[in-house]
Write a protein that binds this DNA or RNA. Structure first.
Lengths: 345, 345
DNA sequence: CTGAAAGCGCTTACAG
DNA sequence: CTGAAAGCGCTTACAG
């Protein structure tokens, strides 16, 4: 048999191989490699050496099947290609890796069907826990997830009834700060391109918007509050319509930076300049992570802290240290002023 | 026992449960659910119904352990929070999901140690295949991976000796097009902020740069070719140094859009305007996916096609349909001219 | 300190 | 068309 032509399909080394070559049972080998029970130092050394020599890589599936734990978590977000989510995912993956957990990343595309499949996929892989940014109207999916008994934590969004654990940012405050900033610059007609009201952060940013208006003694013009569907071109369609309708506004507050950027892109296409003609504020402060050469004023929401917190809570739940406690973490937000907003005064 | 207080830890339904409740053996149940062997239509219906009723979710670990295939792939990239990679990852995940494969996403952070661990992690989970964008100097890791016999495909970068399968974009052409564009606009001193030369795409983009210069009859000034380390602030440090050195140049070609953006950010900080004073060209054309309100001229490299192609090849290899053939795919690149470049003429 | 046995939940031949 | 047996590679009690 020519070694060049057809290499044998490289069977992975198993405990059995190490056992045979060291003279111990697979039992002892297993414990020596995992530091379980007392084994003589000499035996441990011998076995480890042989394992190293054979390039042994444990079969996690087999061990999980028996032990019932996989050291794996799943993160389910709308879309990893959105920097907001990819940053969160990166932080979670890093925190998880520190604790020897591997991370599954699944996209739900704000679609309940896909989200359901993502949850099922995670469960079928027996993940120890799930961090999920629930899509619009995913109550059923979450209720299903809860019934399975798998620990999970909501990230960035929560449900109205609040019986589940979550980590969110202070969206109400963020909405308030953004709006207040514009009001202080003399803007009165502030177009709010919001996300769908089924998303908690959308409702709360709007509440902040309204509080700022109320505190400043201005009435809210409902015409200026728009819900943009989570689809490609959503901003473009909505904003084009607004521009056509000749609705009066001097400032724009977008649900997130991506939408703010797209707004600016669309405004520019219509020869409307930012901030000269329209001031724009975003949300997420993605520029803290991504160098985008457009100085967008934005609400910062401590993505690192939020993500790590979510994993920390999940870890406690996976280790059954939660003692029935509910975790409702709200991480502070603040405004980062850049050059996309200017004073009318 | 109060159902309110302490819910039992929700044991997942198994084939055994379905078997007991339908009167068949787990054997028959398994085949009914998986469409294996001939089973009477009535039995299939009955079993499927019961599975649905009990909310049965197969234990992939157990089935994989026996069958030897996990329907899982791993994607290893430098950093998912970089849009270039997150877009690729998204496309691969989608293509994989279409074929009922789940995707592990692992970051290697351009670090050989982390990359090694990522590979080990993927192997320990018994993935059926791996798509990897190798980090700098990862020859050893790849050689290791090759010895395991797990099918894999390189994405975006390849090794010098070219014995492995890969899908890359036409980087040489991309570098040529970008440079040619600047030359045609009358630029002669073109600063090239490149990545490390251990990365194949870096070497090839440079080759394209040089070919364009040569074809146009201009000498290459080695002072203008800079390798920027893959670290946060790499561009800032390099460019600040260039600015301080008072090196003469009127155009800047960056290894990728992220670096181009960061360059523009740094230039702006130094009150140098783009494109008025410096023309800038990037690579990756991220704006095709992400609305960034800065019209950057960039080389487009068909990310969707490249990613899908990589998965397609991996699929063939996983199904052993490769017949020893080597896959060396080079996907075309083209220039997208926007407003970050202007004519000197 | 080490071993023999059982079992995690499934699938794969093999029987009938 | 369905069943009985074995086994994937590991870990968990239990023995000694």
């Amino acid at each position: 048999m020519s070694d060049e032509q057809e290499r044998p399909p490289a069977k992975a080394t198993t405990l059995k191989d190490i056992a045979e070559q060291t003279g111990f049972t697979i039992n002892t080998v297993s414990r020596a490699l995992k530091n379980k029970g007392d084994i003589s130092a000499a035996t441990i050394k011998l076995i480890r050496q042989k394992a190293e020599e054979l390039g042994y890589i444990g079969n996690v599936m087999a061990s999980s099947l028996r032990s019932g734990t996989t050291k794996t978590i799943a993160v389910i977000v709308a879309d990893v290609s959105n920097p907001h989510f990819s940053i969160a995912v990166k932080e979670i993956e890093r925190a998880a890796r520190m604790q020897d957990y591997t991370t599954f990343i699944l996209n739900a595309y704000e679609d309940q069907e896909v989200e359901r499949k993502a949850i099922q996929s995670a469960l079928s892989k027996n993940v120890d826990g799930i961090i999920i940014c629930p899509s619009q109207g995913s109550e059923n999916n979450l209720a299903f997830l809860e019934r399975t008994g798998t620990p999970f934590v909501l990230l960035g969004r929560h449900l109205e009834d609040d019986t589940m654990d979550y980590v969110v940012s202070d969206d109400e405050k963020g909405g308030y700060l953004a709006t207040m900033h514009l009001l202080e610059l003399g803007h009165r007609d502030i177009l709010f391109l919001n996300a769908h009201h089924s998303i908690s952060s959308s409702r709360e940013r709007l509440a902040g918007y309204k509080r700022a208006m109320a505190e400043s003694g201005f009435a809210v013009n409902p015409e200026l509050i728009r819900e943009v569907p989570h689809l490609t071109g959503g901003v473009k369609n909505e904003l084009s319509e607004v521009i056509k309708s000749r609705l009066a506004y001097t400032a724009l507050f977008a649900f997130n930076d991506m939408m703010a950027w797209e707004s600016i892109y669309v405004l520019n296409k219509h020869h409307i300049r930012v901030p000269d003609q329209i001031s724009v504020v975003g949300f997420d402060n993605i520029q803290s992570r991504l160098f985008v050469p457009f100085p967008l004023t934005s609400v910062s929401n401590a993505k690192g802290k939020t993500s790590r917190k979510a994993f920390e809570i999940l870890l406690k739940k996976m280790h059954k240290q939660n003692s029935g406690k509910r975790y409702h973490e709200v991480v502070d937000t603040r405004l980062v002023v850049r050059e996309s907003t200017r004073s009318l005064l």
